[in-house]
């Protein structure tokens, strides 16, 4: 894992610097005078040779310092701390939607294979996989916010309502701590559309893999045996078939968690959701060196962590798998 992290940091560091673009000029704007740009470059140490910048960055990293963002002029770790909780909230809600709907639809399609429900759900899965998040987001806003008025628009709270005091950064928890029930209710209302937009992408892929995995298992001998034993069909499906079909589903869920940040970039922009996806986009666009490397490092750690959890779940789900 150390090698992976070092590799990610090194590659991102050099790629960001090899691009023929000056982040200081981009951040100070097209009208800043040349001498001001040169002064600012020196202030950030960007006038030094690239290998010296690299050594400085790595030695800072070893002390737990991700550097300061050129764009926000704050430590990158502080920025990640500010923006990540909103993404966690959105991601968790989206994942719940993705898992519940995806597995539900997948199991039903498999059980009723060839029926109208199966065909409909497959069409939905294909549409879901091919629909860009920003388009779906805008469509949902247009229908449920603009036309029907059932759900609120972008943001995490009504625009005029002040945020409860920040304790964890997770608005769900912070509202409860502040006993601000209006904020909690509003937050949950605001969460529905972005979570569904982001969750939809996962729903489609989880449903697809659940269906095919279930179909495969349903033809196994032990399912026939269970049925011949006279077990109830629901028991056959849930206890015998589903449990054995779970392994590839868990893999897909693991991958979806990592992909969620990718989807979050667009979802967070459309829904004005102040998360890490938007921070990453802004950092990439302004070639904010430290922020780009910091976010890449953070993502690499997150990805590795997700893989670890999936591996551990394998062992739990299939006792034949043991790690030594």
């Amino acid at each position: 894992m150390v090698v992976v992290v070092w590799g990610v940091v090194t590659i991102t560091f050099f790629v960001a610097r090899v691009i023929p673009a000056d982040p200081v000029a981009a951040i100070l704007g097209p009208q800043a005078p040349q001498d001001a740009i040169e002064r600012e470059r020196a202030r950030w140490g960007l006038d030094k040779p690239i290998h010296i910048q690299y050594v400085r960055y790595i030695s800072g990293l070893l002390r737990g310092d991700l550097g300061v963002s050129l764009r926000t002029r704050r430590p990158v770790s502080e920025d990640i701390k500010q923006f990540f909780p909103a993404t966690v909230e959105l991601g968790v809600a989206a994942l719940i939607i993705g898992i519940v709907l995806g597995i539900g639809v997948g199991v039903i399609s498999a059980v009723r294979s060839g029926s109208l429900i199966d065909h409909t759900s497959r069409v939905f899965a294909i549409v879901g996989l091919s629909m860009p998040a920003f388009w779906l987001g805008l469509l949902l806003l247009l229908i449920f916010y603009h036309t029907l008025g059932w759900l609120p628009g972008p943001g995490r709270l009504p625009y005029w309502y002040p945020l409860p005091p920040r304790v964890t950064g997770l608005l769900f928890i912070d509202s409860i701590i502040a006993k601000d029930w209006f904020a909690l209710k509003s937050f949950l209302q605001h969460l529905v559309l972005p979570a569904f937009t982001l969750g939809w992408l996962s729903t489609a892929s989880i449903a697809r893999i659940t269906r095919s995995s279930m179909l495969e298992v349903m033809h196994e001998e032990y399912i026939k045996t269970a049925r011949m034993k006279g077990l109830r069909e629901s028991l056959v499906i849930l206890k015998h078939a589903f449990r054995n079909a779970l392994l590839p589903i868990v893999t897909v869920i693991g991958i979806r968690i990592a992909y969620m940040l990718e989807g979050a970039v667009l979802t967070e922009t459309v829904f004005a959701w102040p998360g890490l996806g938007r921070y990453a986009t802004q950092s990439f666009l302004s070639i904010d060196f430290n922020a780009v490397v910091g976010v890449a490092l953070f993502m690499a750690l997150l990805y590795s962590f997700c893989n670890l959890v999936v591996d551990l779940l394998y062992a739990y789900l299939n006792p034949k798998i043991r790690y030594v």
Partner: peptide, 21 residues
Amino acid sequence: RVIIKDIPDPSAQKLALDKGD
């Protein structure tokens, strides 16, 4: 009071204006 709410997407700004938010 003046509240300036970050809505980066122009289409989302338009929807919010239409709704009176």
